[in-house]
Amino acid sequence: MRAKLTLQQLEAFVQIVTTGSFRAAAVHVGVSQPALSRTIRQAEQILQARLFDRDTRNVKITPVGQELLPIAQRILGEFDNSFGELGQFLQGRTGRVSLGVLPSIGASLIPGAIASYRSQHPEVEFSLLEAPADALLTAIDEGRADFGLSVRPAPDRRVRYRHLMNDPLVLVCQRDDVLATRDSVPWSIFATRPYLASQASSSIRPITDAALLRFSVSPALEYPSISACGALVRAGLGITALPLMALDLIRMDGLATVPLTRPQVNRQIGIITRIGRTLPPVGQTFLDTLLDQTGSRSSTRQPLHRSVFTRQADL
């Protein structure tokens, strides 16, 4: 015989054993005493055995009841633990965050954000996907990333973008270059020096192309990666413009940065999610933490990645 008792029946049974009284057990589970008695009768009918010997004054558990008791306690305990785990998940205290990021974001903003979040939620796991902007959009669309941190996508992409911060572009040159002594330089400087440009597929290239459009600048070289760009500048092959957060991908010894003006150009960084997809609770709480850290949830002010510009190698 395979008995199919409900959780309600098991709880009523355990409460009667615990309290020693149908009346006290009914109060504990929040039902009337007749309703509790019906619940126990239904359980006894399913088991085809009595669980209690009772009269007007005494309630005694039967041998069948004694056999059932540890089983019922275990089932109820496992149920409570499971829903406790679900509660932790719903509160964003457990689970996995699948996050897609640009390489520069993964090297600059994300490590500190994850460390801060996990100090409060140590059970949360993170899965990081690092890729160029177009590949990130594909990963988000296919569900391989819950959300991404990237540049603003084109309007025709079916994703939701929420602005997070502005990442200013700076000039990168050798430390002994005369430009390194200046407080700022205009974008027209690239018309007078060999200019190193990112590849056309990079998320940086459209931004620098737009800033240089009226200066008729032709690249001396196109670099394949941010780290390669730093090496090319260090070798004296030219100067370049990079987002401030991208500097975490470069070995800065021997190099300097100078603010770029006229115009001042920013790379817009934001949170990208797929339209119609609900984030897991842990993903939403991590995003809330990220928004709080960058000031984007409570203020329209867009904080810079670094509070000051410096021309020292230890940026």
Rank of each mutant, 00 (worst) to 15 (best):
K4E: 11
K4W: 07
L5W: 03
F13L: 01
T18H: 14
T19I: 00
F22S: 04
H28I: 08
V29W: 10
S32Y: 02
S32D: 12
P34W: 04
Q42A: 14
Q45V: 01
I46K: 10
R54V: 03
D55K: 05
K60N: 09
Q66E: 14
E67P: 00
L69F: 05
P70S: 00
E85T: 08
R93H: 10
T94G: 05
G95V: 01
R96C: 11
V97Y: 05
P103A: 11
I110H: 04
A113L: 15
I114N: 09
R118M: 08
Q120R: 15
E123A: 15
V124S: 07
E125M: 06
P132W: 00
A133I: 00
L136W: 02
D141F: 01
D141N: 06
R144I: 00
A145L: 06
F147D: 07
S150Q: 04
A154N: 11
A154K: 15
P155L: 08
R157W: 10
R160D: 12
R160M: 08
Y161C: 05
V170G: 13
L171G: 13
L171F: 10
Q174F: 00
D176G: 07
L179R: 11
A180W: 04
A180H: 07
D183V: 03
V185R: 09
P186S: 04
F190A: 15
L196W: 09
A197C: 12
S202D: 10
S202P: 11
R205N: 11
L212D: 10
L213Y: 09
R214M: 11
R214T: 11
L221M: 13
Y223D: 03
S225H: 05
S227R: 13
A231I: 01
R234W: 01
G238L: 10
T240K: 13
A246E: 03
T257H: 10
T261A: 14
Q264I: 09
R267P: 01
I269E: 06
G276P: 12
L279S: 08
V282E: 08
D288W: 02
L291S: 13
Q293R: 12
S296A: 15
R297H: 08
S299M: 03
T300E: 11
T300M: 10
V308M: 10
F309L: 11
R311I: 00
